[in-house]
């Protein structure tokens, strides 16, 4: 057996598994997106691109796409930047660092659906604690009903999800920072580089491969976000937080239109690929996966 064959044999179980659990359902979704799929036992019929026309022709799609892009931008930015800051902080030789690293796990160990319930409670103007704190420290002059406001509702549904995800990002960044050889940093210090110069010149280039991985993962999670928003606002107020996955839920479980739902699912995948690509181009790296 040649090396190539041996490699293939080793990779085959995983590839077959993924084909079975992702490939087949994914391709089925793609096929459904060109069909009318009755829920009864009648066979599905081919309808060309009707489902795509239906999805794209619905004005709520465009509105939802805009909301999804805003949401994803905020989510990726927050989850990534906070994660990076946490990692940089927890990489410093500080007292209590061990405990702090344990704290890092808490948001991530909280199921996302519960994170949503928790944040909704937290920001409630009556029973929640956030208003009380902001009021006490003088940030607000009156209790603010955050979820009543379209912009704030989007901000806080982002915050709740990013609270969970920032820890995930931080852990990956922390790992990357651990491998940064001390000598390089010390050498930069000897050369008289300021902290910012050291970050720009040494630390950032070192963690950039990991940054790209984190951004891609966060983009995917952002575009597919559902649980947190659903338990916090059900897409409201109005359609202020109606993300594409919420539209997808409605197509599949309220309008019971499997064909249109599948078309929407395909579009969702396309959006995620496009947004990831844009993010990677902005970060200026051709191949994110060759870390």
């Amino acid at each position: 057996m040649s090396d190539r064959q041996f490699g293939l044999v080793l990779a085959l179980p995983a590839i077959i598994s993924l084909v079975l659990v992702v490939g087949i359902p994914g391709i089925q979704t793609l096929i459904y997106s060109f069909q009318r799929v009755p829920l009864s036992d009648d066979p599905a019929t081919f309808v060309g691109t009707d489902n795509y026309g239906k999805v794209l022709g619905d004005e709520s799609f465009v509105e939802s796409l805009v909301v999804t892009l805003q949401y994803t931008a905020g989510y990726v930015l927050l989850a990534t930047v906070l994660g990076l800051l946490f990692a940089l902080l927890l990489d410093q030789p500080l007292r209590g660092r061990g405990i702090a690293r344990a704290l890092l796990i808490i948001p991530w160990a909280t199921p996302v659906i519960i994170a949503g319930v928790m944040w909704k409670w937290l920001i409630d103007p009556q029973v929640g604690g956030l208003n009380a704190v902001l009021f006490e420290i003088g940030v607000i002059e009156d209790y603010k009903p955050f979820l009543a406001d379209r912009e704030w509702a989007l901000v806080f549904t982002i915050l709740a999800a990013a609270w969970h995800q920032a820890s995930f990002s931080a852990l990956l960044f922390l790992a990357s920072l651990q491998t940064l050889p001390n000598e390089i940093v010390e050498a930069a210090k000897v050369d008289g580089a300021t902290a910012w110069q050291r970050f720009r010149g040494v630390v950032f280039p070192w963690i950039r491969p990991m940054l790209l991985v984190v951004v891609v993962i966060n983009v995917i999670y952002g575009v597919l976000q559902f649980d947190t928003v659903w338990v916090m606002t059900q897409g409201g107020p109005g359609d202020a937080t109606t993300l594409l996955p919420i539209l997808l839920y409605r197509q599949l479980f309220i309008f019971s239109d499997i064909g249109a739902g599948s078309a929407l699912a395909v579009m969702l995948g396309v959006v995620a690929v496009l947004v990831s690509s844009i993010a990677l181009i902005l970060l200026g790296r051709d191949d994110p996966l060759q870390a």
């Binding site: 993924l18 979704t29 891609v216 969702l268 690929v273």
Partner: peptide
């Protein structure tokens, strides 16, 4: 296959749960 591994995460669970 390495690329497709990451993009396997793009499939929304809501859409494929029926197949599962």
């Amino acid at each position: 296959s390495y690329f497709s591994v990451l993009f396997a995460r793009l499939v929304p669970p809501i859409a494929i749960v029926a197949a599962f």
